[in-house]
Nucleic acid binder design. Structure first.
Lengths: 359, 359
DNA sequence: ATGAAAGCGCTAACAT
DNA sequence: ATGTTAGCGCTTTCAT
C-alpha cells in the first residue's frame, strides 16, 4: 500500500521537545548583519560582500553549525537540487551499477539523487511518477523498463510531459520516449542489437549451431533488440535459433524458462543465450538443478557483464556494458544544457561458459 | 570534486520558457475557493470541508494535474518527507539489499529516500552528512561502515547530534553510535559474532583444522565481531586460526589478501574465512588465478549470503543475513516512535565451497 | 465550514 | 556594498 502523503506520526519532534535547527536568520542576527548579507556569503554565488563581513558571517555560521534548509531554498529559488532516479530494482546489479554512475555525477555537482523502485509494476510506476513530480526535480532518469512490454511500455506521456513542461528534464534508458508534445526525451541508448550481433557472430565462430534464446516479453525494446541482434549474428555465423523462451529480466524467469526447456529436452552442445546476465545466471542454476553441466554440455552466454558474471564457474560469456558510465551519462544528459551522447562501447567477453565447440 | 551547492547551469528552465507547474493557488482560483480550503481538501488530513467543495476542488486539481510542491510543504510544515540513507557503495550487493529494504518501507509510508554514497571515505562522509542535514530529513540511516576503523569509526558525534537535535532520528547499522549528549542512536544489530561462531563450529565439525581469516581493518566492528565469533567457534570445534589478513570489505581486498597468502604458501585442506561474501568472492578469484582449486584443495566460506554466493561454483558456504529485512527494520526504527528491534535470524548455509574434510 | 492573513526559511529584486 | 522587502508555494492560526 502506498500512502499518498507522508504519515503523520512519522513527523519528527512529535515528542515535543526538539529545538529547531539553526536558521539563516539566527546567523545574521548573531553576526550583526542583514539577512541578505548572510545569504550572500553563505549561499549566493556572486561575491560582493566586504571581507570583514564575509569572514564574520562565515565564522558565526560555523560556530552555530548552520546548514541551509534545502526545502526553503528550493521554494525560494523555484528549483530543487534533486535528480530523481527510477529503477526497477535497486538490488539488481544492473540497476545498481547505473545508480552508482548517476550518484557519481550528482555528487560532482552537489546534487541529490532520490531513488525510487518500480518493482516493474506499472501502477506503482505511475504512483511514483506522480509523487516524484512533487519534488520538482531538475531531472528524472528512467531506468526501469517494465516487465510488460508492448507499445505502451513507457510511462504515460502525459505524466512525463508534466515534468518536461515545468522545465524538468526527462532522460530514459533505451527507448526514445515520447513527451507528448511531439518531443522526445533524451535517451541513453546502448547498441544492444550491435553488441548482441557481435556475440552471435562469435558464438557461431566458436562452432555453435543451435541456440535457445531466453528473453523478456515481446515488446520490451532491450530484449527485442538483443534477441534480434543475436539472431542476426548467429545466423550469419551459420547457426540457427531453435526456440525463444519468454519471461522477464529476473533471475527466476531465467531459471523457469531454462527448466521448461530442459523438460522438453536439450541436446548436448546447445547454446543458451539469455538477454541479460541475471537471467543467464538463473538459467545456469536450472541447468545445474537438472543435473546437466554448463559449458561443454550446455553452453550459456548473457549480456551486461555484471560483476557476478566473472565469479560464476564456468565464468559467463557475455557482452560488457559500461553500466556505471551509462549512469553517469544519464546524469549528464539531465544537467547539461547541450549534450550529445558519447557512444558506449560494448565488448564481447568470451569466457568458459562457452568453450570452443565443433559438433 | 564535490560542489557545496548545486551548479547554476543545472537549473532547469534556463532556456527561458517553461511555464511553471500548477500551484495550489491555481487550483483554488479555478475552483473558486480559498487557498485554505483547497489546501485542506488536497493535503490537510482533517476532514472539515463541505462535500460540494471537496469534490469540486478535487476535480479541478485532477483536471489541472496539480501535485503539491514538496519543498514548499516542507518549509511550511517544518519537516520533510525524506529519509536519508548513507551507504558505502550502492553497487555492492550488501548495500543494495539493505537499500531495497529501506525503500520498501519508505514506499509504504509515502516517504522518499535519498541515497548517498560515501565510497568509504571519511571526508566524503562528513561532507555528505553536512549536505544531508540541509534536507532536514526525518531520519538518517547509516549503513556505511568505513574502511578505516579504530575508535572513531562512526561519524563525528557532533554531526549526528545536529540531526538528533532538531528531531531527526539517526539509525545506524552495527555499532551503537554515540550522539553527543550521552544518548545513542537506534541501531540495527546483527548477531555477527553469534552467526560467525556457528559457522566456525560447523567448519570445525566438517573437519577443518586450520583457517586463514581475511578481514577488514582492525577496529571495524562488523569485521571484528565476525572474526572473533568465528575464532571462538572454530577453536571450540578443534581448529586454530593460522593467520589473519586485513583489507576492507571490497572484492579486490579479498583477492589481494588471498594472493598474498598464496604467495606465502597455503597447504591443501586449509579453510579460508572471509568476513563477507564479496571479499570471499575476491579470494576465490585469487585462488583460481593461482591455479589452485576451491573446495577440496582450499575451502572458502564467507558471510552475508548475497545472491552471487549461490551462483558461484562451487557455491559459497556462508551465513545467511536477511539484509532486505534489516533495511526494512532500519526504516521502521526511523519512523516508528516506539520501536524495538526484532531479532534478525542468521543462518549458516553450508554449500560446496567447504566440502566435508577429514585431514 | 470557510476565508484572511501571518508565517516557514530563504532568495532576489530593489533601494540606498 | 549593504539592507529592505516582496515574494516562493504551502500550512495553519485566527476570525467570521
Amino acid at each position: 500500500m502506498t500512502a499518498e502523503s507522508p504519515s503523520r506520526e512519522a513527523r519528527p519532534g512529535a515528542d515535543g521537545s526538539s529545538p529547531h535547527a539553526v536558521t539563516l536568520h539566527d546567523v545574521a542576527r548573531a553576526a550583526g548583519v542583514s539577512l541578505a548579507t548572510a545569504s550572500r556569503v553563505l549561499n549566493g554565488s556572486e561575491r560582493k560582500v566586504a571581507d570583514a563581513f564575509r569572514e564574520r558571517v562565515q565564522r558565526v555560521a560555523d560556530e552555530l553549525g548552520y546548514t541551509p534548509n534545502v526545502s526553503a531554498q528550493a521554494t525560494a529559488r523555484g528549483f530543487s537540487p534533486v535528480i530523481a532516479l527510477l529503477v526497477a530494482d535497486i538490488a539488481d546489479p544492473y540497476f545498481g551499477q547505473i545508480a552508482a554512475g548517476v550518484a557519481r555525477g550528482a555528487d560532482e555537482r552537489g546534487l541529490v539523487v532520490t531513488i525510487s523502485i518500480t518493482e516493474r509494476d506499472r501502477d506503482r510506476e505511475s504512483r511514483i511518477l506522480r509523487a516524484l513530480r512533487g519534488q520538482r526535480p531538475q531531472g528524472l532518469i528512467l531506468a526501469a523498463s517494465r516487465a510488460d512490454g508492448h507499445d505502451d511500455a513507457t510511462p504515460a506521456p502525459s505524466e512525463l510531459e508534466a515534468f518536461a513542461r515545468y522545465g524538468g528534464r526527462v532522460v530514459a534508458f533505451g527507448d526514445r520516449v515520447p513527451l507528448g508534445s511531439g518531443q522526445t526525451a533524451r535517451s541513453i541508448s546502448l547498441d544492444n542489437a550491435g553488441g548482441a550481433e557481435q556475440l552471435g557472430l562469435r558464438m557461431g565462430a566458436l562452432g555453435y549451431r543451435r541456440v535457445i534464446v531466453i528473453g523478456s516479453t515481446e515488446g520490451v525494446r532491450t530484449s527485442d533488440d538483443r534477441i534480434d541482434g543475436f539472431t542476426r549474428g548467429f545466423t550469419r555465423g551459420g547457426g540457427a535459433v531453435e526456440r525463444i523462451l519468454r519471461g522477464d529480466f529476473r533471475r527466476e524467469a531465467g531459471a523457469a524458462a531454462m527448466a521448461a526447456a530442459l523438460a522438453d529436452g536439450v541436446d548436448a552442445g546447445t547454446l543458451v543465450f539469455a538477454v541479460s546476465d541475471v537471467v543467464a545466471l538463473g538459467a545456469i542454476s536450472a541447468i545445474r538443478a537438472a543435473g546437466r553441466e554448463v559449458g561443454a554440455d550446455i553452453a550459456v552466454c548473457g549480456f551486461d557483464d555484471v560483476p557476478a558474471s566473472g565469479d560464476v564457474t564456468p565464468a559467463l560469456t557475455t557482452v560488457r556494458v559500461p553500466l556505471n558510465e551509462a549512469g553517469y551519462q544519464a546524469f549528464r544528459a539531465v544537467v547539461d544544457e547541450d549534450w550529445t551522447q558519447d557512444p558506449l562501447p560494448l565488448e564481447v567477453v568470451v569466457r568458459d561458459s562457452t568453450p570452443g565447440h565443433s559438433a
